[in-house]
């Protein structure tokens, strides 16, 4: 896979960050290195291998449907950048 300026611009958008031109060049070559390294994996024949999504063998790890106390609100809001009337307050998401 080839990483170009468009790929970086797209990732900036997804990650909600803005890079300087120098950072873009650097990011482009770093990402290219990473992706090229990963490409080595693609050379392996995985035709008959089941995709692995878990690295341990646990299954059916579930809990019973029983209510436990939630956090008290002051604690829940402690890390909020802004609080208003018991709500988390964030920059407006609609125009």
């Amino acid at each position: 896979m080839k990483i170009n300026n468009e790929t970086v611009a797209y990732l900036e958008k997804l990650a909600r960050i803005e890079l300087t031109d120098e950072e873009r060049v650097e990011c482009c070559s770093d990402l290219q290195d990473i992706v090229s390294h990963m490409d080595i994996l693609s050379e392996l024949d995985t035709q008959d291998a089941e995709p692995l999504s878990q690295s341990f063998s646990a299954k059916n790890v579930m809990r019973e449907d029983e209510v436990k106390p939630s956090l008290d609100r002051d604690t829940a809001l402690k890390n909020a950048p802004r609080v208003k009337d018991g709500f988390f307050s964030v920059p407006k998401t609609v125009e």
Binding site: V90, P91, K92
Partner: peptide, 15 residues
């Protein structure tokens, strides 16, 4: 739940 119209500048969030 996001509440957009209760506050002029910010969106309020109830989780």
């Amino acid at each position: 739940k996001l509440i957009h119209d209760a506050d002029e500048i910010n969106t309020l969030v109830d989780y």
